[in-house]
Structures are given as C-alpha cells and as structure tokens.
Lab assay of single mutants.
Amino acid sequence: TFVEFNGKKVEYPTPEAAEKAAKKLAKKLNLKVTKKNGNYKLE
C-alpha cells in the first residue's frame, strides 16, 4: 500500500500501517488524505 505526498511515494507493508502513516503525515503537513485504488494520497 502506497502513501503519496509531495511527489514522493512511500510503500508500507500493510494497509493499516499506510493508513496510520497517512493520517499522521496529513496532520503534520496540514493536508487531507484521499484514498484511491487502495492507496493514500495527501493533498
């Protein structure tokens, strides 16, 4: 499962880990999380 932000793509071993990381990053970077095709994107 990938988390995409600032043009970077980071892969996580589980969807749970990706979701957790996405939410944490979104909060830190003041972005919102969108889920697309099972992957997460911060914008």
Rank of each mutant, 00 (worst) to 15 (best):
V10N: 06
T1K: 07
K24C: 11
K32T: 13
E43S: 10
E19P: 00
K28I: 12
N39F: 09
N39Q: 08
L25Q: 04
N37I: 03
K32W: 06
P13K: 11
K20H: 12
G7E: 05
E16I: 09
L42I: 10
E16F: 08
Y40L: 08
T1C: 10
G7T: 04
G38L: 04
V33L: 12
E43R: 05
L25K: 04
K41Y: 15
K41N: 08
A22K: 00
T34M: 09
N39H: 15
N39L: 10
K24M: 14
P13D: 11
N6R: 11
Y40W: 12
L25R: 02
A21Y: 08
N37P: 03
K32I: 14
K9R: 14
A21T: 04
L29V: 03
K9Y: 12
K8H: 14
G7Y: 05
L25P: 01
A18L: 01
K20L: 13
N37H: 08
K35M: 15
L31D: 01
Y12G: 00
K36A: 14
A26Q: 03
A21S: 06
L29A: 04
K9F: 14
A18F: 01
T14D: 07
L42S: 01
L29M: 09
T14C: 05
K20N: 11
K24T: 13
K23V: 13
A26F: 01
A22N: 00
N6C: 13
L31V: 06
L25F: 07
A18G: 04
K28R: 13
E11N: 11
A21H: 05
P13C: 08
A18T: 02
T14K: 03
Y40E: 01
K36S: 14
L29F: 15
A26W: 01
V3H: 00
A18Q: 01
K35S: 09
A17I: 09
T34F: 09
V33I: 15
A21L: 03
N6Y: 13
L25W: 09
G7I: 01
L31S: 03
T1F: 15
V10D: 05
T34A: 07
V33K: 02
P13M: 08
K23M: 15
V33S: 02
A17M: 12
N6S: 07
T14S: 11
E11S: 13
E19Q: 09
E16C: 09
L31W: 03
G38Y: 03
K36I: 15
G7S: 05
E11G: 10
K41G: 05
T34G: 04
K24A: 15
A17G: 06
F2S: 07
L31H: 03
K24V: 12
